[in-house]
Structure formats: C-alpha cells, structure tokens
Design a protein around this nucleic acid. Structure first.
Lengths: 188, 188
DNA sequence: GAAATAATATACCTATTGGTATAGCATACG
DNA sequence: CGTATGCTATACCAATAGGTATATTATTTC
C-alpha cells in the first residue's frame, strides 16, 4: 500500500523481533524500501513512530474488546467472550502483541512503557468496570475490582506469551480452562 | 566493597531504571567511579555483565526458593511458602526483579531474554515438579503441571509488578489472597 | 629481590545512532 | 500557466555506541 503503512508494518515486525531500542531507523527504512526523510515526514521521530504503532493497534483491540466486555449478568460468559477477543486479536497481530508485552514490565520511564501506558489503563478500566458491576451479584468480590482486573489480564497475557513462544494453542480449550481457572481455581 | 561488586550494583540499578539497551558502558563506569577497561577486565563485554547480574541474583533466589518448594503434602501451604519466598526476594532486590521482569516478554533473541532463560526454566521445573507430586492427591490436575506452573508464576509476577509500580503491598494479606485466588478462583 | 600476574587508566578506534539541510519531483489549486 | 503543498532522496551532522591498544601500578609467587 502506501509508504506510511509499509513503515508501520516493517517497524512493528522489527521492534517485536529485536527490541525497540536496538532497531535503528536506517534498518527500518531500508526494509521498507524508502529513505529516512520519508519516515520523519510521517512520524516526526522514532518515538512518534512507536506511538503511532500503539495507537493503530490498540484502537483496533479496544474496538473488538468493548462489546465483548459488556456485562450480561453472566460473569463467566462475559469473561469467556473477553478472552476470546484477546485470543483473536493476538492471533491476528502476533507481532504487535509481542511488542506491547515487552513493554509491559519495562521501566516506567522508557519510551515503550510511556507509549503503551494510556492504552493499558483503558483496558484496566474496562475490566474494573465489569468486575464492579458483577460485584452486585457476587458479594465476596466487592472492592477487589482493581486486583481482579489486573490478575485477569495478567493471566490472559501469560497464556498469550505461552502461545507466542510456541508452547500452547489459543483455541477454545485454552480459553475455557483459563476462565475456569480464574473463576474457580485449580481445585475445581 | 570491591570494584566488581560496585559495577554489578550500579549496572543493575541503571538497567532496571532505563532499560538494558539504552544504558551505555560509559554511564555505568562513570557512576561506579572506574574506567572502561576495569569493567571489561571483570566481565568481558556488556552481555557478560548482564549474564553475571542474572547469575548472582537468580542463584540467590533459587537458594531461597528450593526449600520453600518442597511438597509437604499440603499444597496450599507449600504455595504460600513459595509466594512468601518470592515476595521476600522481590522486596530485597526490587531493582533486579524489575530488570528480569522486563526481559520476561522481550524478544527471544534479545540479550536479556537469553541471559535469563535458563534461570526461568529452573523455576518452571521446580514448580512443575511440585504440581506433579500434588497431582497424586488431586486427580483433576494431572497433566496440567506445565500450565499451572506457568500461570502460578505469572500471577506472582503480576502481583510483584503491581507492587513495583506502587499499586500494592507485598504483605501476608497479598500472599494469602494470591494463593486463595489461584487455588479456588475468584468465586470462593 | 625478581618475575609474573592482576587490576587500573588514558587515549583512541570504527561503526552506528537519531536526526536534518538542501534540493528535486509530484500533484493539486488558483 | 504558475504557484503552493506534499512527498521523497542525497548527503550530511554531531554524539555516542561497544570495544581496545598501550602503559602503569599493585600484588602475588618464586
């Protein structure tokens, strides 16, 4: 397509494969078949390129996630549809998922963390809201939305990382056991 | 004390605060009050320095973890002592914990991932062994050691990351709710 | 005491980094 | 037709990267 899209896709692939900091602009523009000023024309800086990657992909994730996270009154069913949305997205954008996961635990002052932070917060809010609504039906989970949202997302990401490293599949089976483990623990 | 220990501690702090790739050797040796050849004398390369950091700290973690992970016949009790060991270690070495967490989801070809990989595998083995032994008493968890070990460690790391970012405490309360959630889910 | 070895510093290397000044070419617009 | 704007390339910049050649000092060993 256009040069802009080429740059985004090449950069996502290289950042995911080698790490944001070790990939130089030169390598990106070479593989995209363009020259530096073109990249700087569209994105302004290396960090601007990263921010654009985050925006593009996270917007798409949230678009898919929002309807899936509407509380229907049946929490396990809602959790299942959320996990499915995450799995679908990760299967469709494995490189981006790997990239943003790498930023998840990186230094809060780093470019990657800063570029992804606002988008993680949106996911966190979405999940917190869900657990808060569900708390009306499940008294024992009151005031635990924060930690539930965090550990639920943590578990999802652990599964996806497992998949990205070739140790598991992201199928309905995995989805089901994830939700069951989160809901009822390993003793169920 | 010695220059060697100074280098290790300064490098750990800087790597954790800014990221391995963006910290230059010059910055490390400056802050350690020495010069480049001294660092290269002890560690051979930047990567060698990283490997040494991993070795020193992970050795200490495993030393603390091994006795805690011995299966006593009471799985929740064993899980609790494991979580406590992780919490203690993370409280004592927050910078190293942050550093190795940053490598957890980074590209498998990156220096950080490679330097930490063997040590993660040791933790994974330790936990898998535990869940395998426990499966004798809990039939429903047979052949699930892999995923249980992974998600248990994932949950622990999610909690610790929560703490490192200032959102939670790593006290007995947190430990208890982590183990309970992992064992019985959010519905218990 | 001499010789070897470990530890340290000054000064330097080449390659690459993110970024830009300048200019050319295209298309759209008046 | 002429001008303005968007897009692209060549060639360049200063700064920094990881790493080292050489020399000096401190320590150990014989």
């Amino acid at each position: 397509m256009g040069n802009k899209e080429d740059i985004l896709s090449v950069a996502t692939r290289l950042f995911a494969a080698k790490g944001y900091d070790v990939v130089g602009i030169q390598e990106i523009v070479d593989q995209a078949g363009i020259s530096k000023p073109t990249m700087y024309h569209y994105f302004g800086s290396k960090n601007g390129l990263l921010v654009a990657i985050m925006e593009t992909n996270f917007r798409s994730l949230l678009l898919e996630l929002s309807p899936a996270a509407v509380y229907s009154g049946d929490l396990p069913a809602t959790l299942t549809s959320i996990v499915k949305a995450y799995f679908r997205f990760a299967l469709r954008n494995p490189e981006f998922y790997r990239l943003h996961l790498a930023f998840w635990f990186s230094p809060p002052s780093s470019d990657g963390f800063c570029a992804a932070k606002e988008w993680w917060e949106k996911q966190q809010q979405l999940l917190e809201m869900l657990f808060m609504l569900a708390a009306n039906n499940h008294g024992n989970m009151k005031n635990r939305q924060r930690i539930y949202a965090a550990t639920f997302l943590g578990t999802i990401n652990t599964f996806i990382a497992f998949f990205l490293n070739g140790y598991a599949e992201l199928d309905d089976n995995a989805c089901h056991s994830l939700v069951r483990q989160f809901s009822h623990g390993i003793y169920s």
